[in-house]
Design a protein around this nucleic acid. Structure first.
Lengths: 191, 191
DNA sequence: TATAATTTTCAGAAATTTCTGAAAATTAAT
DNA sequence: ATTAATTTTCAGAAATTTCTGAAAATTATA
């Protein structure tokens, strides 16, 4: 009963996308109202805005907290819990990616590792080779993402803006290095 | 019936992860058998291995084809369609990412664009500012991913291996540039 | 053209996920 | 310690997704 009209399409959309992003419709909608409304909201307000049950809101808030996308905000003199986004849009986006990596690739990496540890396996077997390939790919991606996350937001932004331009820089670096070898000076990027 | 025992845990796992990766359990399992078994498989073989109905297999194959993860392989003298992965593990991984971007971020980008085009909106409104931020973030990510995809596999691999080391290379590039501008300033490779 | 082989479709069944709402639990105020 | 405010839980209901299997459609063969 009280969703500001200008937010309707956004909320509906976040609901529809919710399941693709790893949660369900109402959780997606709840996230939308919390992000797009400036004031922190309490559970009853959310339930009213989205016309869903109080219990559903409670579960959804738990879910969003488990994703570390929202945090409580307490108002002095009011016993209700109010909720607001856990950071800037940029931080929220990184958080979603990070959480999804944890849920979508970590378990697979674990499985592949144990598969590779198994003694008495035919290392030449076709499936074993595929397992190795996937494992190495995920490990590579994983460490890359880990590194990336540590960058300051604006370094990361620069990096994204550069895009494939990085290729050029890398080529350039290679040239420098080979030149350096001849002149015996070393530039050592982190391995 | 005839799922090779050594593939059991892999297939089960790919089934469980399926929904997190954007398809459902059986589609995940089907993908697993197609990837981990060297010989191309026909629909009946898949149905038997996974003990699922022929109709389900037909739908799943369509789904995997819509993701461009498998392709048909025709055997002369055999009217059945056989299926095999649409590329190397590396290519399949990129294809999954690409398809997920299409399904998970493209629609949102479209919505945000139209929101921002809307005439007579309060550009100072809180929600409008959030929309702008999300829009810009996604556009940035989008063009970056586009660029990245064009790189040759081994360039991309180098890039991933470098990880946060890219930051160092970038710093280095910046210094070179400022050196160009200011003429004659010393380069300090190590901070 | 008729027949056989294969694939696709889709209505209803089965399985799974999500949601409600009232009761239980928790927390704070008097 | 009692009462009041708030949040959480969870059994069953509702909604959604997935699956089956037989019929329809398609494609190749004789």
């Amino acid at each position: 009963m009280g969703l500001p009209v200008e937010l309707e399409s956004l909320v509906v959309h976040f609901g529809e996308m919710g399941s693709r992003w790893g949660f369900n419709r109402t959780v997606g909608q709840m996230f939308a109202v919390i992000v797009f409304i400036e004031e922190p909201l309490n559970a009853d307000q959310i339930a009213n805005m989205l016309s869903i049950s109080r219990g559903n809101v409670s579960m959804g808030l738990k879910e969003l907290q488990s994703w570390q996308l929202i945090r409580v905000h307490n108002v002095p003199g009011d016993r209700k819990d109010y909720f607001k986004p856990a950071g800037s849009i940029w931080e929220l986006a990184l958080q979603v990616l990070s959480e999804r990596r944890k849920r979508e690739v970590e378990p697979t990496l674990t499985l592949l590792r144990t598969q590779l540890m198994q003694e008495g396996r035919d290392h030449k077997a076709f499936s074993h080779e595929r397992v190795t390939e996937i494992h190495d790919l995920i490990e590579l991606f994983n460490t890359w993402f880990n590194d990336i996350q540590k960058l300051k937001p604006d370094s990361l932004q620069t990096l994204l803006k550069l895009g494939a331009g990085v290729g050029k820089v890398l080529d350039f670096k290679d040239k420098l290095i080979s030149k350096d070898k001849k002149v015996s000076k070393t530039i050592k990027p982190e391995d």
